[in-house]
């Protein structure tokens, strides 16, 4: 599994587990979770992956990563 695939899988897994709390909460909490627990290079990689299409990211995970990108911008 490539690094990107793995990161996407991790992000999706977080999103799926938080989804029951409602999409909006899930997006916010997924973003927070990644910010809080992921090393900067992983965050950078996932952001780059999203920018490059990010087709393996689930909608919530993608929105969460987008929010992270916006936050650091």
């Amino acid at each position: 599994m490539s690094m990107n695939d793995k990161l996407a899988m991790m992000a999706n897994q977080i999103a799926r587990n938080l989804q029951a709390r409602g999409d909006e909460t899930a997006i916010a909490e997924t973003a927070d979770h990644i910010a809080k627990f992921w090393d900067p290079r992983m965050r950078k990689d996932i952001a780059a992956y999203l920018e490059g299409g990010g087709d393996r990211l689930s909608p919530i995970a993608a929105k969460a990563v987008r929010r992270l990108i916006d936050r650091s911008a």
Binding site: K36, F37, W38, D39, P40, M42
Partner: peptide
Amino acid sequence: PEPGLRIPN
């Protein structure tokens, strides 16, 4: 101030 890597990472 940024988190580091976990073992699997």
